[in-house]
Computed example of a mutant assay.
Amino acid sequence: MSPPQITAREFEEWLNGAFIGDPKDAREYCTRTMSPNYLRFSAGGGRTDFERAVEKVTLFRTICRKWEAPVKFIVQEGNKIAVRCTVSMIIGDSPEQNMELMFKAERDDEGRFENVWELSKPIDKTAD
């Protein structure tokens, strides 16, 4: 059985939750929104399992000073979802960065993210 469709706003809220929130609540957030079988692959290398996701969410919530990620595109079929968004962020002492994020995932029967693939690339928003 496929989980219910997720709206662009709901996806934004999920993604924002990885960067914005109390670091102490990172495990609860991950448990609620990610399958215990969560696996994330980044294009170009890198793999994140559930425990590593908890660590990353805790870190991001600790050092993120700005995170804006409006969804530009979302499509779904059954338990599969694909999203495109642009991100403006400030992480730690770094200057503001902008990137395009391409995201594909499968969700479990409870709607939690399970198999995730991401590709991100820097963009120059002044070139628009």
Rank of each mutant, 00 (worst) to 15 (best):
A69P: 01
W117K: 07
G21H: 03
A105R: 01
D25V: 02
F113I: 00
E68R: 10
Q5D: 13
N16I: 00
F41L: 15
A69V: 07
E77C: 10
A53H: 15
T86G: 08
E118F: 04
C85F: 12
V54M: 00
N37S: 11
R112Y: 04
L39W: 03
F73Q: 13
E68P: 03
S88A: 15
F41M: 14
L119S: 14
V116D: 05
I90T: 13
E96Q: 12
G78I: 04
A105C: 01
E10F: 03
G92I: 01
A82N: 06
L119G: 11
S94Y: 14
I91A: 11
E100D: 08
A69C: 13
P70Y: 07
R112P: 02
G45I: 00
T62I: 02
F60K: 08
A127D: 12
A8I: 06
F11R: 02
I6D: 08
F50I: 02
K121P: 02
R84D: 11
I90V: 15
F103V: 02
V57R: 02
K66Q: 13
V87C: 10
K24G: 11
E51I: 03
R84E: 13
E55K: 11
F113H: 05
L15F: 15
R47F: 13
I74C: 09
G46L: 00
S42P: 05
C64R: 09
F19H: 10
G46R: 07
N115R: 11
S42V: 03
A82Y: 03
K66F: 08
F113Q: 04
F19Q: 01
S42K: 11
V54Y: 07
A43R: 13
L59K: 15
R52W: 09
D128L: 15
P95M: 06
V83T: 06
Q76A: 08
I81Q: 03
G45W: 03
K104A: 14
S35N: 00
K125W: 11
D109M: 03
N79A: 10
E28A: 14
Q97P: 00
Q97E: 12
K66I: 05
T33A: 09
G17Y: 01
G92Y: 06
P70A: 07
V83L: 09
C30R: 05
L39R: 12
F19L: 06
